[in-house]
Amino acid sequence: MPEASRPSPRDDVHALDPHTLRGLAHPIRMRLLAALRHHGPATASQLAERLGESSGATSYHLRQLAAYGFVEDAPELGKGRERWWKAARQGTSFDRSLYTDSDPSTRTAVEVFLEELADSHAREVSTWVHSATDWPVEWHGSANLSDYTLRLTPELAAEMNAEAHALIESYRDRAIPEDAENVAQVRVHLHALPQTED
């Protein structure tokens, strides 16, 4: 899924505005973009097979993603008429001003975007739960499904989120040798959600 919530110091992050948010806020487009970010360049047919969609649908939505700057051609991989796509950037940032945009279509896009993001997180957690016993035992204690309840102000919640993001980012560029054993792509979800107490 697109990685979202706050601006990142990384250069390869697509900052959403009302226009680009409306272009991205579609379940198939978000899943296509996530697949390209997580698994690398692919053709529309390969993505259709991965997502369980028709290649016509994936081709259409890839062109829409390209029009909004989320994906681009990877001509170095194509052979003949085969068209390969890659993610233009590796992350997405979501500015809080989008919540209060005056355009109703933007507010609808916010809901669609956040719903699909939540659904993608749920799918990834479910996949881990149903496949956990297939992983080497070292990974059983390294995976994490935790939750906490804290009493915070909006300022303290924002501070906590910023510190958590900084910690996670500090692990991004740790050098891991190409031939290292027992290395996996690790997805980290961070949810900090205010809720009523009744």
Rank of each mutant, 00 (worst) to 15 (best):
L150H: 00
T106I: 05
V183S: 07
D134F: 12
A175E: 11
A132V: 15
L117W: 07
S105I: 01
Q185R: 10
S102E: 14
S120V: 03
F113D: 05
M160I: 13
T127A: 15
Q185W: 02
Y171W: 12
E181I: 01
E115D: 14
Q185H: 09
L114Q: 11
H121V: 12
S93M: 09
T153D: 04
A157T: 06
D147P: 00
Q185V: 10
A132M: 15
F113S: 07
H140V: 02
L114I: 03
L98G: 09
L156D: 14
E155I: 01
L156C: 00
D119A: 13
A157Q: 08
A158Y: 00
D103M: 00
S170P: 02
L167A: 09
A180L: 05
S142D: 12
S131P: 08
H130D: 15
L156K: 13
P154Q: 03
F94P: 03
V125S: 08
G91A: 13
L117I: 02
V137T: 15
T127I: 12
D134H: 14
A122V: 08
E169D: 15
D119E: 13
A118G: 07
T108V: 01
P177I: 02
Y148I: 04
L156H: 14
R151T: 15
T92P: 01
A157D: 04
A118N: 12
Y148H: 09
T108L: 06
Q185A: 07
M160Y: 13
L98F: 02
N144L: 13
A166Q: 08
P154M: 00
A175P: 00
T92N: 01
M160H: 12
V183F: 02
D101A: 06
N182Y: 04
E181Y: 06
P177E: 07
S170T: 01
D95C: 05
P104F: 03
H140E: 09
F113W: 06
N144I: 07
D103F: 00
V186W: 04
A143Q: 06
P104W: 03
V112P: 00
E178Q: 09
S146I: 00
L117M: 11
E181Q: 13
A184P: 00
T149I: 10
V112S: 02
P177N: 01
T127Y: 15
E169Q: 10
L114A: 05
E163Y: 12
E163T: 11
S126Y: 10
D134V: 03
D95A: 11
E169F: 01
D179C: 09
V110D: 00
L150Y: 08
A118W: 05
A180E: 12
E124A: 15
T106A: 06
W135T: 07
L150Q: 03
A164H: 10
T127C: 14
P154R: 04
S142T: 04
N161G: 13
N161F: 11
Y171L: 12
P104E: 06
S102I: 08
V137F: 01
P104K: 02
D147E: 07
A166E: 07
T133G: 03
S93D: 13
S102D: 14
F94D: 03
S126L: 14
H140R: 15
E111W: 02
L114R: 08
N144H: 11
I168S: 05
A132L: 15
T149Q: 08
I176S: 05
A184G: 06
D179L: 08
A158W: 03
A180T: 06
V110L: 02
A184D: 02
E155H: 04
A122H: 11
R174W: 03
P136T: 11
